[in-house]
Amino acid sequence: MAVLHNRVSQEELKKRLMEETEPRTTISFYQYFFIEDPQVFRDELYRNLDALKVFGRIYVANEGINAQISVPSGNFEALKAYLYSIEPLNGLRLNIAVDDDGKSFWVLKIKVREKIVADGIDDPAFDMRNKGRYVNAEEFNKLTDDPDTIVIDMRNYYEYEVGHFERAIEVPSDTFREQLPMAVEMMKDKKEKNIIMYCTGGIRCEKASAYMLHQGFRNVFHLEGGIINYANKAMELGLPNKFRGKNFVFDNRLGERISDEVIAHCHQCGEPADTHTNCANEGCHLLFIQCKKCAEKYEGCCSDECLEVKRMPEEQQKELRKGIVKDQNIFNKSRARLRPRLKSVQ
Rank of each mutant, 00 (worst) to 15 (best):
Y198R: 02
L213H: 11
E296M: 07
Y230W: 12
A137M: 08
K297I: 00
P172M: 02
V184A: 11
M197D: 00
N281R: 09
D119A: 06
K326V: 13
A280N: 15
R321V: 01
I195V: 10
L13Q: 14
N247Q: 09
F217A: 05
E44K: 13
I65N: 07
G283A: 07
L89R: 10
I169N: 01
M154L: 12
K53V: 00
N252V: 01
F243G: 03
E161V: 02
H222S: 09
G323F: 11
H276K: 07
Y198N: 01
T26L: 11
V171T: 07
D148K: 15
R16V: 02
I27M: 04
E282Y: 09
R218T: 09
K109F: 04
E11I: 11
E12N: 03
T277R: 13
C279T: 08
H222E: 11
R204N: 07
R155L: 02
V262C: 12
R113D: 14
H164F: 08
H164D: 12
D148N: 15
E224N: 13
K111F: 05
M128K: 11
R204P: 09
Q346A: 10
S303L: 07
S209V: 00
E178F: 10
Y32T: 05
C199V: 01
E315R: 03
Y298W: 14
R24C: 09
I258T: 01
E206D: 15
S85E: 15
R337S: 14
M18T: 06
H285G: 05
K333A: 13
L49W: 02
L307P: 04
L254N: 06
V135F: 10
K297C: 00
T277A: 08
G64L: 02
A81T: 14
N247T: 09
K191E: 04
N241A: 03
K111H: 11
V135C: 14
V98F: 06
K343T: 11
E161A: 10
E139N: 03
S303Q: 11
R93E: 06
I203V: 15
E114R: 12
R321S: 11
